[in-house]
Amino acid sequence: MSKLLSLSEAIARYVHDGDLVYASGFTHLIPFAAGHEIIRQRKRDLILARATPDLIYDQMVAAGCARKVIFSYMGNPGVGSLRIVRGAIERGELEWEEYSHFGMISRLRAGAAGLPFMPMNPTAATDLERANPNIRRVTDPYSGREVITVPALNPDVAIVHVQRADPNGNAHLWGIIGEQREAAFAAKRVILTAEEIVDEATIRSDPNRTLIPGLVVDAVCHVPYACHPSYAQGYYDRDNQFYLEWDTISRSPESVREWLEEWVYGVKDRAEYWEKLGPETHARLKVAPRLSEPVNYGDY
């Protein structure tokens, strides 16, 4: 059954005020288009969980969508500080909860596996344990050793971007895969955005690449260029220049407001946003093809 929806319908239907949202992707495949649609629909009081909040959550916090962030690395990757989230935390305006990367993704892994918590080897994270009572210890019943535990994370909604999916949400993705798969399996509802919608036969031609099966997906949205300024392997490059520009934009509330006005509220959807970026940016982010060798699944 087709799960195709427009992105605005999917966000209206599946993201509610107060939800715990996990927009997945480590540097790669960050679903900016969905973040912007959440801003446009003026969702409020969200708990925004992401290992690396990145600019997507900086923008959503700036737009007033969030009451809390859960993270493990809050920086502008390769540039410096994530000014808006950082400022809001320093002023005491935003609740936060933090882990190490491994702690954060172990929470998702437990959630994805349907387990109540995940044990981890000791990490000497005593200061993190003091800072976050969710990080606890139990005795391994087999060896008698202490292990660290983190509770399962089951987001109300996960947003996952992929290179291609069929209308049922069977999705092919490639490149570094961050925590996409864990986020999709852990969440109660999954919104998939895809560079391309393909027929089921394309998916069936290479099932090992189906890292997210349609059975965990609720909505499939065709949103080309959904990741900018993040990247989609093989489709377009990361806009490192914009990550640098954001460092300047995010220095003052006025310039952030102007930016949101122009690039989020001022455009209807991602197609209009991409168009507005203009041919120079399109050309700069273009990547040359490099195809993998085909594999032979055999005809049985």
Partner: peptide
């Protein structure tokens, strides 16, 4: 001053 956080730092230093 709020710094970025552990990222993989704690995990790398431990493991």
């Amino acid at each position: 001053a709020r710094l970025p956080g552990s990222g993989g730092g704690n995990d790398i230093g431990s493991s």
